[in-house]
């Protein structure tokens, strides 16, 4: 049943504005990139949360196939949904950053390409969900898709290196030489994003659960 009070939601309510404040008022201005660089703090947090999402979806898929408990389908679905949302944001924030820095909205950089392929795979998983009506079948199919999507990740990484050779110098890792204040900011925004992820994940889980309960009630009434 619906919990009225989710501690993670409250934490996120404080954490996200807190992280934004840290990013804009505490972190120093990057010398060459200027204010645009600040999007990187959110970008990285989103990317970490998105990846976590897909990992959770894969684990939930395995557990669903082994145990056939509805709760694992609910969690798996919630993870895929939130993961796709976060990956979309990763791609958007990356693009916004790339426009002034790389002078292009999109470039076939390995990390961008990896994110894009993952976005495709897990969006396909959502489309698959919408194409199956019977609950058990839908759950099994999505579990299988989430698992094969996640095991694709190593090969996606391997192949994404190929694109580097096309644009050899575009990506310089900002993560290497950061000022201490920047590292603190990064940690704060990473934590805030993970808390937000957790809150959204729980929200989607509980919505899934309520939808299922509603369907059960409808079916019982129809009999």
């Amino acid at each position: 049943m619906l919990k009225r009070f989710d501690p993670f939601a409250v934490l996120a309510l404080v954490g996200i504005p807190g992280a934004a404040a840290t990013v804009f008022f505490y972190a120093p201005l990057e010398r060459t990139m200027g204010v645009v660089q600040k999007i990187f703090y959110f970008h990285l947090g989103l990317a970490a949360a998105a990846f976590l999402s897909f990992f959770v979806a894969c684990v939930a898929g395995v557990l669903y196939l082994l145990r056939r408990q509805r709760v694992w389908d609910e969690r798996g679905t919630a993870a895929v949904e939130v993961g796709v949302l976060f990956t979309t944001l990763v791609l958007l924030t990356g693009s916004i950053w790339g426009r002034p820095i790389w002078n292009t909205w999109w470039t076939w950089d390995p990390r961008l390409t990896t994110s894009l392929i993952l976005w495709f795979i897990f969006t396909a998983c959502l489309i698959l969900r919408s194409a199956v009506e019977q609950e058990e079948k839908r759950a099994v199919f999505c579990a299988v898709m989430a698992i094969v999507g996640f095991v694709d990740v190593p090969v996606v990484f391997l192949s994404a290196r190929l694109w580097r050779s096309i644009h050899p110098t575009v990506i310089r890792s900002e993560g290497i030489a950061l000022e201490p204040a920047m590292i603190v900011t990064l940690a704060v925004s990473l934590a805030a994003m993970l808390i937000l992820w957790r809150a959204l994940f729980r929200l989607r889980c509980s919505i899934q659960r309520q939808e299922n309960t509603l369907l059960d009630l409808q079916q019982q009434l129809q009999r």
Partner: peptide
């Protein structure tokens, strides 16, 4: 014996 089959809540 006491066979049950449930699809979700149905």
């Amino acid at each position: 014996e006491r066979l049950c089959k449930a699809y979700g809540g149905l």
